[in-house]
Amino acid sequence: MNINLFSFLIVCLFFVIVIESVRRGILETKDALIWLFLSVILGILSLSRGLLELIADWLGIVYAPSLLFLFGLLSTIIMIFDLTRRISKLNQKVIHLTQEFALLKEQQRNSSSEFEEKRKENI
């Protein structure tokens, strides 16, 4: 089995895993989009050596497979950056929730102690 077929099979397996994760509700559809897009492109590139060489030639890359590395590396960096942005956003949400929780709890404690006092007055 040559490397082209081997990598194509891996990409196919990956594609199925992504679809399956969405189906089971582990991965959100909007997060799956970029992975599906990536695996389709990788699938095409790994099968058609001609296309890879054409693009490599066009970009002035002597050794065509290194284009795959470039593509893989770039998309990894972009995705990690996207993840960091999402973490920052989630972090803000967690902070906001934590603060609201503490404020509400104080409010609740306050109103229940007021309630207790009123009850005692009535007795």
Partner: peptide, 25 residues
């Protein structure tokens, strides 16, 4: 006194802001 207990550690900025939110409300 008024006590705001954050269920997890937020760091000084997040903690002080909780107090400011209380003051604002």
């Amino acid at each position: 006194i008024v006590s705001l207990h954050l269920p997890q550690n937020l760091g000084i900025g997040g903690a002080v802001q909780t107090g400011y939110k209380y003051a604002y409300n």
